[in-house]
Amino acid sequence: MAATISSSTFDFLKKLSKNNNREWFNAHKELYIQSQENVISFLEDLIKEMGEFDPELLKIDAKKSLFRIYRDTRFSKDKSPYKTNFGSSLGMGKGSQKGGYYLHLEPKKSFIAGGIYMPEPSVLKEIRKEISLYGDEFLKIINQKDFKKYFPELDQESKLVKVPQGFEKEDTMGDYLKLKNFIVIHYLSDEEVMNPKAAGKMAAIYQVMKPLNDFLNAPFL
């Protein structure tokens, strides 16, 4: 039987957000361990489902894919010691050299994502070249009916004001060349996350984003 994200896991995260301190966390460490194990079991099933269309993912260790719950507070005004979510990198992370997938579990704020987040300058340049050269192919992917249904547009949060140097100002793909990240996000309700069939449903959405990852990875194959 497929693993399901339990309500107790979200209850733990809700309590943690209200008691984000070491004393409370240490007193409720068992709740954290149970929640973490629940998420890992779910990820194992999700990876199996996703392996049907992307066999490379089967190499991923579910436990190692989880980000630490401990926050790095050195350069942050917010000194809360713990994250109030479970995040899993399925080949996607800051500075990653290739397109991948990401899962974020948090009460009322869960989402799945894919693409490349904050790639190194050399990688970003190659992706921009690919988009400039093969714009029609890129547009066909992001305008595909199912893709548009889950991902109306690429994330626009990090973007240049002008077309980057090395590209024509009038390049028809100019708006996309300005992007610093190439990621798509689909938000999930708590009910969708805790649905007994969530792993299969999420995998189906991830499969829709795979052509984007394939395109982003093409320059490096």
Rank of each mutant, 00 (worst) to 15 (best):
M173F: 06
V161G: 07
S6T: 12
S110H: 01
K18L: 12
R74P: 10
F147G: 03
Y134V: 05
L13K: 07
T84S: 10
L212Q: 10
I183L: 02
D45L: 01
F86V: 04
Y70F: 01
A62M: 08
L43A: 04
Q156R: 13
T9N: 04
L177D: 10
G114H: 11
V161E: 15
A198H: 01
F138P: 03
Y134T: 13
S8E: 13
I5T: 07
A113Q: 07
F167C: 02
T9W: 08
G51L: 01
K15V: 00
V163N: 05
S88W: 01
L221N: 15
R74A: 02
K197S: 03
I131V: 11
K109Q: 15
I183C: 07
S110L: 00
D72Q: 06
L216V: 12
R22Y: 01
E106Q: 11
L58W: 02
M50W: 01
Y176L: 07
K129C: 12
P164Q: 05
Y187L: 02
V161R: 15
F42N: 04
R22V: 06
G174K: 10
Y150S: 06
K201S: 08
I69L: 06
Y176G: 05
L139M: 14
P211K: 12
E56N: 13
K149T: 14
L66K: 03
N21P: 00
N20L: 03
L90A: 04
Y32G: 06
Y176R: 08
N143M: 11
G135H: 12
R128V: 03
A62I: 04
A62L: 09
I205M: 00
Y176T: 06
E170Q: 14
K169V: 14
E170N: 13
S7K: 15
I142H: 04
A204Y: 05
K98P: 04
Y117L: 14
S17K: 11
K169R: 13
L58V: 06
L66R: 00
D171H: 13
I112C: 08
K77D: 09
N217S: 14
K59T: 11
F42S: 00
T84L: 04
S35W: 14
Q34A: 15
L13Y: 07
T73N: 14
P196W: 07
Y117D: 05
M50K: 02
P119H: 03
Q165L: 14
G99T: 13
L31V: 10
V161F: 14
P164F: 01
I33E: 15
H28S: 10
K169N: 05
L133S: 12
D175I: 13
V193W: 03
D136T: 14
F167R: 04
D155Y: 05
M173L: 09
N19D: 10
V163F: 05
F53L: 05
Y187G: 09
E44F: 06
P196H: 11
L124N: 00
I69S: 08
L133M: 05
S80W: 07
Q36S: 14
F12P: 07
F151T: 01
E56C: 06
E120I: 11
I5H: 03
F151G: 01
L58N: 09
E126T: 09
I185Q: 10
D155R: 03
I205H: 00
K125E: 15
N195P: 01
V208H: 02
S65H: 07
G51C: 02
E130M: 12
D45R: 06
E130S: 04
E44T: 15
A218Y: 10
S132G: 10
L216Y: 02
Y102L: 03
G87L: 07
L66Q: 00
L160V: 00
F182R: 02
S80Q: 13
